[in-house]
Design a protein around this nucleic acid. Structure first.
Lengths: 98, 98
DNA sequence: AGGACTATACGGCAATGCCGTAGTCCGTTC
DNA sequence: GAACGGACTACGGCATTGCCGTATAGTCCT
């Protein structure tokens, strides 16, 4: 890993910690939401079929298909959710457990 | 990297492996997605203004307004995300940190 | 009174969500 | 090799939401 990459991650972690600590100004904190997401890649890493992926994280199967086929782009909230599925899939599972 | 962070990643990998191994049933697992969400309540508990709430979790301010005013209902992915924000706000922050 | 902050209210177009169905590819089983 | 089921591509089509902007109202502070 390059130093640059490390610094980037560290900055992110510092920001997150500052936020959680309440050190950061909650009014000014602003997250970055990516404009595009490689849904197929995220799903592949989890080793799930489109159907299982949708059922596991709550997506509509039709939406997953549209996204993977490039027919439609996941809208903002979906992109955020996909990011969480990618980085912290367990958190999603816990939050949605009944 | 902390041990805690490592364990988190490992847990994720273990889950993925469980899926691949067939230890977990890919087909039957299905989460429940609520049809309605009390956005105002979720936000109130976090003690954030509409603007700060939107900026912190990535929502569009206009969407938050529409939801709270009962003008529109958050669609599926947004409802899932809201549930995660409610139950595991830190996970969202971590996933979206740069 | 004036200003800063927060929330309500809503017009309006573009875009997505979601449903359904038909067709393709592939590994497997008879 | 024909039949089968699973996974995926492709897409028509309507209802609904996303998201933009702007105007209005309430609250608190100086």
């Amino acid at each position: 890993m390059s130093k640059r990459a490390f610094d980037k991650i560290k900055t992110g972690l510092d920001d997150a910690r500052a936020y959680l600590d309440g050190t950061a100004d909650k009014r000014r904190y602003r997250v970055y939401v990516p404009e595009t997401m490689d849904v197929k890649k995220i799903r592949a890493r989890l080793g799930l079929s489109q159907e299982a992926f949708a059922a596991t994280y709550g997506f509509a199967l039709s939406a997953v298909r549209d996204w993977e086929q490039g027919r439609r782009r996941p809208e903002r909230s979906a992109r955020i959710l996909l990011k969480i599925v990618q980085k912290e899939p367990d958190a999603v599972t816990r939050a949605l457990a009944r």
